[in-house]
Design a binder for these strands. Sequence first.
RNA 1: GCGGGGGUGCCCGAGCUGGACAAAGGGGGCGGACUUAAGAUCCGCUGGCGUAGGCCUGCGUGGGUUCAAAUCCCACCCCCCGCACCA
Length: 973
Amino acid sequence: MSSFTGSATNFGSQLMEISKKWLIEWEKHGVNEANIDESKPKFFVTAAFPYTNGPLHLGHALTYSIPDVVIRYKRMKGYNVLFPMGFHFTGTPIISISESIARRDEKTIKRLLDDGVPIEVIESFVNPINLALYFKDRAINSLRNMLFMIDWRRSFTSVDKEFQKFVEWQFLKLRDAGYIVQGTHPVGWCPFHQSPVSMHDTLNDVEPEIQVFTLIFFRDEENIIYPVATLRPETVYGVTNLWVNPEATYVLVEVDGQRMLLSQEASYKLSFQKKEVKPLMSIKGSSLVGRKVVNPLTMEKIEVLPAGFVDPDTGTGIVMSVPAHAPFDYAALKEIGYENTLKPISIIDIDGKPSLLGVEVVNNQGIKTASKEEDRKKLEELTKDVYLREFNSGSMSRELSSRVSGEHIYLGIAKSIEGKPVKDAREYLKEAIIKMKLGDVFYEIANKPVYCRCGTKVVVKIVENQWFINYEDENWKKKVYDALRGIDIVPNDYREQFVNTVGWLKKKACARSRGLGTPLPWDKSWIIESLSDSTIYMAFYTVIHKIRMHGINPEKLTPEFWDYVMLGIGDVNRLSASLGIDKGILEEIRKEFDYWYPLDNRHSGKDLIPNHLTFMVFNHVAIFPPEKWPKRIVVNGHIMVEGMKMSKSLGNFITIDKALKEVSSDVLRLSLILGAEIGNDVNYTKQLTTTVTETLEGIYELVVSVNSSRHITEENMSESTVFLEKTLETKLHRLLQEINELMENYKFRSAAIKIYHEINNELKLHFKINGLYRSDLINRIIDSWIKLMSPFTPAFAEELWHLTGHKSFVVNESWPDPSMFVKSDEHALFLKYIDTIVDDIGNLRNLFSDKKEVIIVASSSKPCYPAKARSYLADNNQLRELTRLLAREGVPSPHDYARRIVAFLKNLTMDELNKIEKLCEYEVEILRKMSSYLEGLLNLKIKILSEEAPEAQEYIVKKKQSPLPMRPVIIFK
RNA sequence: GCGGGGGUGCCCGAGCUGGACAAAGGGGGCGGACUUAAGAUCCGCUGGCGUAGGCCUGCGUGGGUUCAAAUCCCACCCCCCGCACCA
């Protein structure tokens, strides 16, 4: 084989040149533009559009490589394909970066410099649109360089006026359908900025987490509320007293018309959660000690006691004391010498027996106080243990209701949770307390303190009048479940996750007070949030280029316009008149939508299943009729780099631009596809790209050398070459069939292995046996092979295609059909038979690694037992019958032989089974014809003998073994 | 905690509708051929045993179902991801 000179790196740069060359050629000929063609079935594919706050990275490369393979494949299969790409500007991160630039934040500037943004451009980023546009342009370049076949005429951004009109229509539709609701909603909030904060607004990028406490209202004789904040409302039945911090300052406030006592800190926090918190007076904690309050669930009268462990900045600063189940409480009782006065009350059973875990652990550890440093540390841990044990394996006491004074109206509540698991009791009680107005909810920042970038401590604010998309609407959910059944999910393993997501999905706040995006049409003070404005935008791709082409003013894109274009609602003549748009144009746009929609494939990363992808289904269901619902969702995994999660902080973050400086787009694409089957995480490694480059180099050299080899016709071929060509052709038929099936099932990794390795190996083996030459078959194989490579490594394939003398574009060729290679059932059968011989020799050669010659003595005159075995195939139990029959015929080790034959027959197609007699009849001849193949494959010298040959008789006698049909004797010499 | 996914040979990774699985494919390692040499390329080996196509061990751990389990069931351990107003 000749002789492409150059090292792998040289070939690597040659590949880069090839990519550039064909990108230009294709764009010149507009191969990536998609227009209506009624003569072809259409195939419409989209992938999640990128958020342009930075350069595209390998994750994008992966997510877009897969649909690109799909459309290139589908295109060759005769589909009219569309793969468009837009850009997501909606949201706050872009604005946050702009604000950082405005205040000259060094970290942000450094990051942008690292991303290759020139300093003067960075300065322009104080305007967020400049930033978004800059990265959009870079993204387009990256995507072009990846050779993605994107129809750029249909590109848009989510702040384009036309798109905003479309989103307005969508939201009006949702509102009309009753899916938009308003309500209150807790958010992390900066009191200084007077605005919600999320991760990118906080110091150190901490996401403020919100924790829900249950408030329980204890009352004194003046009806003043002492609210305790707890995560364990069920323990209210075991309360012996309340705790306050004697050193802390408490305030008496008026809330919702009631008087309430709580720590100063709590009162501040509460003021963000209630309409009004009116302070009346301050009181030192110590002066609360000794007051008597009533437990609202048991009507028991208890006392307020002092405890230093009470943190006035957690909850309300008032704590209910449950010594039986809370180590802190028991320790605090001990500290003030009350452990015998106030007897711990067990209200939780563990393993069906009343427990006093709180008391036990404190006594076991010899803890005497709740205030000493070392005790507190221990207590914190013990609290966690007790909490978990009681939560996971505790159940409410069976005598719980005896804690409630007899005729009390809430006796029923206690009764209904008696004996129930703590988990369930807690949920039940929480709801009951709030419903009965015996308490309330109180929100805390769970991971506090969290600070806004301005340094202000973040609190929880209840936002009034927040707009939600009501994804918890049961009827809506039902329709989504139905829709999901009709959607093909690739890989199907993710279906369950979709179904579950629909199950737990709640109301989704769909608007924010700041950020880029579309104002809510009926309340322009709100901006539609980014996960809500991007649920049906795929439909927009179908028409945007036409809207622009006809110069339609965005103001004309009214709800009536969209009703007609997307839903076919309304009278086109009247619409034309009222909008002043040509009727023909309206119809043309409508037709464009109707031709391309529904979406055939939606591609995205698996992280978007619980939000975007599911929202997409919800919104399609809400707005479009069933025939326009998406047909397939393809989910890809994450990208890893050298075995580690790719991230900026790990320093292994690779942008597409950077990757393409090291490897060509063909290599990158194929590496990502070969990295993992769809749905799994792809591990991108230097090693992998090197291997892929070398593989492509090998293929290149092979094609080049075949191309320059001599052409021979069948008349000039040796008999054995004719035979082996038939075998090769049969193999190719099989391979193409397998590849087709894999492609149809989105098993691109496996398909690529067959294309780039297995065909490769078959050809190399064939040439090794026969020498390098061209023939009609070989030419056909090479042509088909190049076509098969085209979806994965398009520029590389294009190069080979032209190298082998073609003038057309391979991207425009048809996908090879297996039928172009004649499958001979006989040869397929022979091949499978030869495989068993190869296996056997392989098994034995370990024992005879020093021997280089193999003699195969084949049966030539015995009855064709395999044919007889055919009738025993159906039923495994008849193996015994077959064994008996063989034994009667005097076959040695009949059971082994029977097993072997049956295993072989099971692997055959019906057609092959019908040829089995031929195998018996010509076994010696087949082996002879295939001996050069065996020699090539095994690197051994092979000699075939018929059992009648005198030489064969010697071996038979010596080995005490006689050949049977399909069971030749193999001798290493 | 809840929900989803996963633990396979030196490594990565397929298989997981139960038999053809000592387990595809790739990589690495070792040995060999070629070469003045290196590289590239090609070939062989890469759980253990065995002078004949076989046996033993084995797919997170422990049980179970079955004539037969990497594949099915149960329990446990460990890892990853998501839990919302955030793209």
